[in-house]
Nucleic acid binder design. Sequence first.
RNA 1: GUGGUUGUAGCUCAGCUGGUUAGAGCGCUGGAUUGUGGUUCCAGAGGUCGCCGGUUCGAACCCGGUCUUCCACCCCA
Length: 458
Amino acid sequence: MAQKPNIPKGTRDFSPSEIAKRDYIFGVIKKHFKTFGFQPIETPSFENSETLMGKYGDEGDRLIFKILNSGDFLSKVDEDTYGAKDSKTLTQKISEKALRYDLTVPFARYVVMHQNEIDFPFKRYQIQPVWRADRPQKGRFREFYQCDADVVGSDSLLQEVELIQLYDAVFSDLKMEGVTIKLNNRKILAGIAEVIGAGHLLVDFTVALDKLDKIGVEGVQKEMLAKGISETAIAKAAPLFELSGDNTEQLNSLKELLADSEEGSKGVEELEFIIDAIANLELKSAALKIDVTLARGLNYYTGAIFEVGAPKGVKMGSIGGGGRYDDLTGIFGLKNVSGVGISFGLDRIYLVLEELGLFPETLDRSLDVLCINFGDKEAMTALTLVTQLRNRGVSSDVYPSKAKMQKQMKYANNRKVPYVILIGENEMDTKTFVVKEMASGEQRTFALSDIDGFVKTL
RNA sequence: GUGGUUGUAGCUCAGCUGGUUAGAGCGCUGGAUUGUGGUUCCAGAGGUCGCCGGUUCGAACCCGGUCUUCCACCCCA
């Protein structure tokens, strides 16, 4: 009995028209990565487990796809470990490799391993799939592409400024107008926690704050209280919930609030530098906005934090994110190398472009010219013509069999071929070919010797 | 990991409180039309009703399990 074919949940097949659209996005992103001076690298799909485990927090560890060891792996497990039935301990014994969870940690590993051949500052880009053992839902897959650009070996804030410009350049080029680049700084979050006297609960504090737009002021306060943050501390943080106005006004409020915190003031200073620089340079279509509730990737970010929100009206999680991490390569033994990077979520960008109808129409043109097949003799002449068209870079084909005209025309139609060429008996006699423009239905006749005359009209 | 949701022809979906041979539109194939498609007309093919088990005289429909889809939470691109 034939088995019903299927694919694992959270994975997808990509058909020709989808590939065309994905390639279009990849192309735009890659183009701008290059013009900003980034160089490509690639790393393996799977890494040694110890490279990945513990880098993304407990939640992250759970979402890492583990690869079972080869061979008779269970026989090597001692009775105690096996009998304890503790998944975490057992997993370490039977799985030593895991699928890449993001591109940043493998990149950090790469930098440390190749530090002697790298010229710092090193600007690298990387476009590869990553895997997460997550439950799929809107815009979330178990296999998806990330497009990362990171700079290591420079602590200059100019890098942050450039990365914001890079976001703007890519989304403007994709005609996705109205994206919001949200900006925050880890130092500000730490400063606030310090000022209100909840420094030891920084993570809980920021995680709760991050949910402000989702559960509201009261919800956030409730969660903070539940996490053990005192009422007086929450009361002190009250001005945060009322931050409003443009970036300058928010900066002024933050300056005041964080005046007594050295770290917090440093964060405000950094934020101000970036905001001022971008104000001078001007963005094409994106909006840069301070958002103190932004608290992503707390596990390794130490300075700036970025997140890109889809244009208004599109219900979609963030379509990009990034930030500065001072200590990432430290885990692998290389100290004092600062890095800052951003990521584009290809699959989500795809969904947004689709929803807004922003893909160029020409993308689904996979064949420029199709020659109708009228029989063996005519087909030979057609193939000669097609060969010469191909030599000139025109994608063209001869219908492989002498099917009914209707069928051949229908095929051309479905493939969205803009030009159909007819070479039948009449044309053979007069050494000509007829070109039918499918959109208008108009037909023109060219001499077989005048291929360039036709190519010029394309 | 928690909660909910979905599964019927290649695709999008009907199918009333369980009742005989499970339907439509689109698509596909053939013909009307021997060199003209996207807009006509006629005919035809195509379904273990996700899978396994249970209740019943009888299940696409009810019950249990399982897989899948989509959504929310957690987390995140």
